[in-house]
């Protein structure tokens, strides 16, 4: 009990100190100088309709590469932790027998699977035009595979396909970045491809390409993560 009181006091203290951050934060009236520049010139410079994408993929492209790397590292970590030859034994031994999916689930999932795949691809391909992008698309694709696992928890995915997809898409992403360095203004510069007309699918230079690669990479990585967690449990 005393412990709880101390925790409460600490948290109250923390909130108290940080009050200047939490209170009197009115809505901003105008954009910061930096975003103003992005907003006014981004479309012209990069040809993206979705300015968030412009920021994510180009202006802060290094963040995104890093982000991909984070996810990549996390996937590797999960695989390392939950890999096959482990000393600890399986959780399954400790749990009750699992039952298979119900009829309703099976049918619904089978129906939804192709739709989800398509939807996911749509999202990342249109990342530069509409809300969404590689990460969101990748997650949708991965969720399609999760549905498959709901139906049949022992289903095996082809690891070499997953790994190859993951590795090649990642490498291709980096390659595009380097092409930007060699043939355009700088690393990850998408403008080595024509930026086209704003609003078209084939516009914004290499951004749709990058987002597609990210989508594939994220999708395959998340499948890998879910697969690892599933195998272990």
């Amino acid at each position: 009990m005393i412990k709880r009181i101390i925790i409460i006091i600490t948290l109250i203290g923390l909130s108290f100190v940080l009050l200047p951050l939490f209170l009197n934060m009115e809505d901003a009236e105008r954009l910061s100088e930096l975003s103003q520049t992005y907003v006014t010139e981004g479309a012209e410079e990069l040809g993206t309709a979705n300015l968030v994408t412009a920021v994510v993929v180009s202006y802060r492209g290094l963040d995104t590469l890093g982000e991909v790397a984070v996810l990549f590292a996390a996937t590797a970590g999960v695989t390392l932790l939950l890999g096959t030859k482990k000393k600890g034994g399986s959780v399954t031994d400790l749990l009750e027998e699992r039952r298979g999916g119900s009829e309703l689930l099976n049918t619904g999932a089978a129906l939804l699977f192709p739709v989800l795949l398509l939807f996911g691809a749509y999202i990342f391909v249109h990342g530069h035009l509409t809300p969404g992008g590689g990460f969101q698309g990748g997650v949708v694709i991965a969720s399609a595979f999760v549905l498959l696992l709901f139906i049949e928890s022992d289903r095996e995915f082809s690891h070499s396909v997953l790994h190859s997809l993951e590795a090649l898409s990642g490498a291709a992403y980096v390659l595009i970045g380097l092409i930007g360095l060699w043939f355009a203004a700088g690393f990850l510069d998408p403008r080595f491809l024509p930026s086209g007309e704003i609003g078209r699918l084939l516009s914004a230079g290499a951004i749709p390409l990058i987002y597609s690669l990210i989508g594939i990479k994220v999708g395959s990585e998340l499948i890998g993560v879910v697969d690892s967690l599933r195998r272990r449990s």
Binding site: L62, L65, V68, A69, F72, S160, H163, S164, E166, A167, L168, G170, A171, Y173, V174, L175, G177, L178, L181, F187
Partner: peptide, 22 residues
């Protein structure tokens, strides 16, 4: 030498390592 080579090539190789393992 641009430091971006360290980050770029490094990450690229890291991504490809699972393939190299084959």
């Amino acid at each position: 030498v641009s430091p971006l080579y360290i980050l770029g090539i490094g990450l690229g190789i890291a991504f490809l390592l699972p393939l190299f393992e084959k």
